[in-house]
Amino acid sequence: MTTTWHILGPGAIGSLFGCYLQQAGFGVHLIGRNGGGPQTIELVESDIITRHQFEEAPPDQPISHLLVTVKAQQTLAAIEAVRPRLAPQPRILLLQNGMGAWEAVAERLRGAILLLGTTTEGANRPAPNRVIHAGSGETYIGALETRHQTEAEALCRQWANLPLTLAADPNIHGRLWRKLAINCAINPLTAIYDCPNGDLLQNPHALAQMEAVCTEVEAVMTQVLGEETRGLFTLAKSVAAQTGNNISSMLQDVRKQRTTEIDFITGYLLEQAHRLGLACPSNQALLNQVKQM
């Protein structure tokens, strides 16, 4: 029997994964802000365009496999909207920026098998029905609870025919922390200075702030992960250079006057720092500035 995936939040990444899952033979239904009506998406890869038609899900069809790609701050509301349709023990994969949303989901859905993912696939959506695959990356999946790691491994086997570099990671928590650290170092500063990632490297004041942020993040990560964390400032500068023309999602939200993910990036870091009794004044200052924008 073919597995059917429901995708909650078919933005750029959600739509990309939806197209890939459909190409691999899975049933796919998209659930956007206006429900799960039929939708056509054009997937652009280099000079090749493929059209994917997604049908509306039957209203009485239980959701057994759910891919969540909404922004972190939208997660709970989005989950609550589909909660009546969830199967008794659904497989739910959260593929988002930031950290902390899964804790609230786990509290609400105690019977669910929660998987966490992170991807560096590049995608953008210039129009609601058009997705451009901007660059290949790597995708890692792990379990929120160790006892469910076999489910992450099974999912990677299930997705083996998708055109992704995909692997199960038993230390997904550490991988997500490293991604969070880079987001803390870059995203708030791009929002404050209203610039692409790479422009931070030409701004001495921004670089000084980035270095201070990285020092604080290293102290928190060392305590949380139980291993010394170093070299974050160098890594953050390297990522900013590699993604020089990129407009961070946080800056995009600020420009469009939308709520940002700051509470699930810098805010999450500060929550963990407070729990550990560590002061992070540089990160606190950035959080305050972004929330006032």
Results as ranks from 00 to 15, higher is better:
Thr4His: 09
His6Arg: 14
Pro10Gln: 02
Gly11Arg: 04
Ala12Asp: 07
Ile13Gly: 08
Ser15Thr: 13
Ser15Ala: 14
Leu16Asn: 08
Gly18Val: 07
Cys19Trp: 00
Tyr20Ala: 08
Leu30Ser: 12
Ile31Ala: 06
Gly32Trp: 01
Arg33Trp: 05
Gly36Lys: 00
Gly37Val: 05
Glu42Gly: 08
Leu43Glu: 09
Ser46Glu: 14
Ser46Asp: 15
His52Ala: 03
Glu56Phe: 00
Pro58Trp: 08
Asp60Tyr: 02
Pro62Ser: 07
Ser64Gly: 09
Leu67Ala: 02
Leu67Asn: 05
Val68His: 11
Lys71Asp: 13
Gln74Cys: 11
Ala77Glu: 15
Ala77Arg: 15
Ala81Met: 06
Arg83His: 15
Arg83Glu: 15
Pro84Ala: 11
Arg85Ser: 02
Leu86Glu: 13
Leu86Lys: 08
Gln89Val: 15
Arg91Pro: 09
Arg91Gln: 15
Ile92Phe: 06
Leu94His: 06
Leu94Trp: 07
Trp102Asp: 14
Glu103Cys: 08
Val105Cys: 07
Glu107Cys: 12
Arg108Gly: 10
Arg108Pro: 06
Leu116Val: 03
Leu116Asp: 04
Thr118Pro: 02
Thr118His: 05
Gly122Thr: 10
Ala127Asn: 06
Ala127Cys: 01
Ile132Cys: 03
Ile141Pro: 09
Ala143Glu: 07
Ala143Asn: 13
Thr146His: 14
His148Met: 08
Glu151Cys: 11
Cys156Arg: 03
Ala160Ser: 11
Pro163His: 10
Leu166Gly: 03
Leu166Ile: 02
Ala168Glu: 12
Ala168Asp: 06
Pro170Ala: 07
Pro170Cys: 02
Pro170Asp: 07
His173Tyr: 15
Leu176His: 12
Ala181Trp: 13
Ile182Lys: 01
Ile186Trp: 00
Ile186Lys: 00
Asn187Met: 06
Pro188Trp: 00
Pro188Asp: 07
Tyr193Asp: 04
Asp194Phe: 04
Asp194Tyr: 01
Cys195Met: 09
Gly198Ile: 04
Asp199Glu: 15
Leu200Lys: 04
Leu200Glu: 04
Leu201Phe: 02
Gln202Asp: 13
Gln202Pro: 01
Pro204Asp: 03
Ala208Glu: 12
Ala219Pro: 04
Ala219Thr: 12
Glu228Thr: 13
Glu228Trp: 01
Phe233Glu: 00
Phe233Pro: 00
Phe233His: 00
Thr234Ile: 07
Ala236Phe: 06
Ala236Gln: 06
Thr243Leu: 10
Asn246Glu: 01
Asn246Leu: 06
Leu251Asn: 07
Leu251Ser: 09
Gln252Val: 10
Asp263Gln: 08
Thr266Arg: 00
Tyr268Asp: 07
Tyr268Lys: 09
Gln272Met: 09
Gln272Gly: 05
Ala273Gln: 05
His274Ile: 11
Ala279Cys: 13
Pro281Thr: 07
Leu287His: 05
Lys291Pro: 06
Gln292Ile: 03
